[in-house]
């Protein structure tokens, strides 16, 4: 990895961040494959088999194939990243992730020069994921990033929280974390990563393009059509906690240059 542990370059935006309780982080989840209630994933995700696990990396890469979790873990530099996590529903948390930079994994597979985007896919196992019985979304869950977003040092693949293996309800055994984007971009339980030259489809965009764009950067000046994004409620403060202002790029200003010259109201 490029950045060090806590306090490294990539951590600039996380000064003085107080992580949420492990209990809050692991009982308040959106993971619709296990149900649409916030408590459903913690109740149902134990059914998911996470060992063995491998990620198929394909598309425009030099070394396509199935990469096992063991193989990945051995090759990557693990570190802790304490990140703000801002949900599109206007609540937020602070999560101490353990993981490695996505760029390192992409380098392991060897990205070819024609690649411009990275597509991700979540496991789809109806017998282990009761939420798949309902057509809440067009399953399997898919997400995508532009290659430069994927290669940014802030973008990580997380395999742990608070130094423990990541719980199933948080996306075990391996998930994406893109801290300057709304939480739904940080796709969970990844089974496939595809390098492409065209912008890949993304689940929430397919479900409602007017509400969820491909970029979905945290942006207090661009509202969700049904609610304001100007402020957020920090989880963990109890019944009487005051709202706080939402920060552009969720406070991670170092990514601003990725979007130079782009109209972020249009490319929401």
């Amino acid at each position: 990895g490029i950045a060090g542990g806590i306090g490294g370059r990539a951590m600039a935006a996380s000064d003085a961040l107080e992580p949420n309780d492990y209990g809050d982080i692991t009982t308040y989840n959106n993971y619709y494959e296990f149900g649409t209630g916030k408590g459903d994933p913690a109740k149902n995700a134990h059914m998911l088999t996470t060992k063995p696990w491998s990620i198929k990396i394909d598309g425009l890469v030099d070394k396509p194939g199935d990469y096992s979790m063991e193989q990945i873990a051995e090759a990557m530099t693990m570190e802790e990243r304490i990140y703000r996590f801002r949900c599109v529903e206007a609540w937020s948390m602070v999560v101490p992730w353990n993981g490695f930079e996505l760029a390192d994994l992409l380098d392991m597979a060897g990205v070819q020069s024609g690649a411009k985007f990275v597509a991700f896919e979540t496991a789809m196992r109806p017998e282990e994921m009761p939420g798949l019985r309902y057509p809440v979304l067009d399953w399997p869950y898919v997400e995508g990033l532009r290659l430069d977003e994927a290669r940014h040092p802030l973008t990580i693949m997380a395999t742990g929280i608070y130094g423990k293996p990541i719980p199933n309800q948080n996306g075990a055994p391996i998930r994406l974390v893109v801290p300057w984007k709304y939480g739904f971009k940080s796709i969970k339980s990844i089974v496939r990563i595809t390098l492409t030259d065209t912008q890949p489809p993304t689940s929430w965009n397919k479900a409602n393009a007017g509400e969820y764009g491909f970029y979905s950067n945290v942006n207090p000046t661009v509202d969700h059509p049904r609610w304001s994004q100007a402020s957020e409620r920090r989880i963990g403060g109890g019944l009487f906690a005051a709202r706080q202002d939402t920060l552009m790029f969720n406070g991670y200003d170092e990514v601003a240059s990725l979007y130079d010259g782009m109209d972020l109201a249009k490319n929401y």
Partner: peptide, 15 residues
């Protein structure tokens, strides 16, 4: 229950 923290991580939404 909301006041005493018995409604989960987000008592505001729960209530």
């Amino acid at each position: 229950r909301g006041v005493t923290g018995d409604l989960g991580a987000d008592p505001v939404k729960a209530l």
